[in-house]
Nucleic acid binder design. Structure first.
Lengths: 138, 138
DNA sequence: TTTCGTGCAAAAATTTTGCACAAGC
DNA sequence: GCTTGTGCAAAATTTTTGCACGAAA
């Protein structure tokens, strides 16, 4: 599911970004196929790899990677933004309102439907995010 | 499209909230069927009705009304949260990335589809929001 | 009259930025 | 060597909170 030999340096170069240790570190944290960390959590994990990295750099790196389309930012109600590596297949997110856990769900059909509607309105989709706040049954 | 004789006091009582001038003012601003103002904008409009209202009260009122399900909060990337009166029919939002304008689109089919998927995962939907960042074509 | 809401100002939380230095190309 | 990125600390932005007073029930 994860790329087994991820070449972060190459991805950065292709995006026209300078290859720095900090950017590679942040990428490795986010590409590590797990959850959807916020900036603080990215910093904490990055510090595990490179203790000298700063929060300012994390924010700047997240912004650059987002702009390059390498990662995605999820705006969440009443909580700091979370980040994920840009998924190959589009998906939506369930936020468990009790645990805060974020679960991904596939949404191919949904997105096709939506794309059609948006196109009809004369818009081109740049990005889209669905957040479903939900509670586990029973 | 808008309720023609909105009884904000009644809605507040039914939600178990005390009826204050400030809450009625904020409700009237948000029920006024227009766009999706952020807290600052709500304050500015509310001041048109009652100049003494404060930003702190606006935030507290927005939080109460949201908790009561009367209004909804939209978390937006790289921008302050926006608010809307809870819609009768669920809809998604397009954010025009050039103008910041927010456009509503119907999403009944989409939501049915999504609800089915979420149910299958053992969750009940509390609320859902879709934000589509898009750019006007041509 | 008792409880709850409000305004103000101060604080918290998250994110951004100026500047001097370090690192990439 | 020139350009860009980084760390630090300070600032900007958005949102929350303590407290004394005022309004609602």
């Amino acid at each position: 599911m994860c790329a087994d030999t991820p070449d972060f340096a190459r991805a950065l170069k292709e995006a026209g970004l300078r290859v720095t240790q900090q950017r590679v570190t942040v990428m490795s944290v986010l590409m590590d196929c797990g959850d959807h960390p916020n900036a603080d959590e990215v910093l904490a994990r990055a510090k595990g790899v490179d203790d000298s990295i700063s929060l300012a750099t994390v924010y700047r790196t997240l912004a650059s990677l987002e702009e390059a389309g390498i990662i995605r930012k999820l705006a969440i109600e009443n909580a700091p933004a979370r980040y994920e590596s840009t998924p190959a297949a589009e998906h939506d997110h369930i936020v468990d309102i009790d645990t805060g856990e974020v679960i991904e769900i596939a949404s191919d059909e949904i997105n096709l439907l939506r794309e059609k509607i948006v196109q009809q309105l004369g818009y081109d989709i740049i990005s889209q995010t669905t957040l479903i706040r939900a509670r586990k049954r029973g």
